[in-house]
Write a protein that binds this DNA or RNA. Structure first.
Lengths: 166, 166
DNA sequence: TATTGTTATACTCTATAACTATA
DNA sequence: TATAGTTATAGAGTATAACAATA
């Protein structure tokens, strides 16, 4: 039935439907824009990394072990922001796949030195190449100078934080 | 026992422990930097928004309804990147709290027009103020010009995508 | 007693299939 | 038949507590 209320609502709905979405407040927030940009890049990442069967975290771990052989799980845990219990099962999976090795540290048998296997290194190199390429594609609307500046501005936000842990 | 293997490993571990973490490859990736910057801002967001009992998604929904009264769930679902089933329960919670209202569209009774209640509007305004302030704090190492440029560069990455849906 | 890493487990988030009601 | 929204549920991701081994 066309009550006065309904008539009013109907026109309000039509009005809203015709309007482009106003997200001006959100678009002024740095955090929101970071997330949106990240969510634009990550699907391409996942698509290209499917052939290596690597998620973003897995890739991060492999790259860090590639550049930092023999670091401990504790240090890796902080670097990738994954809690020790969750890192343990992540590493279980990579170890089962023959990509990573855990070696008891002879100097302190509580800790373990993490290294890539030969196969892990091979996969990591291929994955790194793929990621570097895909990143350029996903940000192809930026000039090299713009991309460099973007990275530099983003790092200003988080780089101080990490100095504490090194 | 100090086998030759163990001695070698021990020195490798010590070497690794003394070294600062090399994350040069990751730090050249736009996606990685976006995520790191986002993960730096979001804890402050969560801390400040605790008093409003709002998660990031909840805030996004409220702000969008504030700026776009009477939009449908379908449109909101796309805008906030939450699937219809998950949006339904998110809105259930906001509705239970008396912040949001769902009104059947008299023109098409399948859809619903979403609006903030008076209380929802009040909370949203306070939350928007808090978020705007916290964002400035979290990015206080950037000048206004730098912040504006950062936002502009980030939007270049994702803005084209969204033109399709409006 | 403190630390590294693990196991077990609970909790939240996200994704999917099947359903209701409207069109 | 197709669409908006819901319910139910499964799966992935994340967080926490309790434990073993070592220091």
């Amino acid at each position: 039935m066309a009550t006065r209320q309904n008539v009013k609502l109907a026109s309000a709905v039509q009005e809203a439907a015709g309007q482009p979405l106003d997200q001006s407040l959100l678009l002024n927030l740095v955090g929101y824009n970071c997330r949106r940009a990240y969510l634009t890049i990550i699907p391409l990442f996942e698509e290209r990394m499917k052939k290596f069967n690597l998620r973003a975290v897995d890739f991060t771990v492999l790259t860090l072990l590639h550049a930092n052989p023999n670091i401990t799980q504790k240090r890796l845990s902080k670097a990738v922001n994954v809690s020790p219990p969750n890192l343990a099962i992540l590493l279980d999976r990579l170890e089962e796949r023959g990509l990573v090795m855990r070696q008891r540290n002879p100097l302190d048998k509580r800790s373990q030195a993490l290294v890539l296997t030969a196969e892990g290194t091979k996969l990591c190199l291929k994955a790194e190449k793929t990621v570097t390429e895909l990143e350029l594609e996903a940000t192809s609307m930026l000039s090299d100078a713009e991309r460099a500046q973007l990275v530099s501005l983003l790092q200003k936000i988080f780089i101080r934080e990490e100095e504490a842990e090194g």
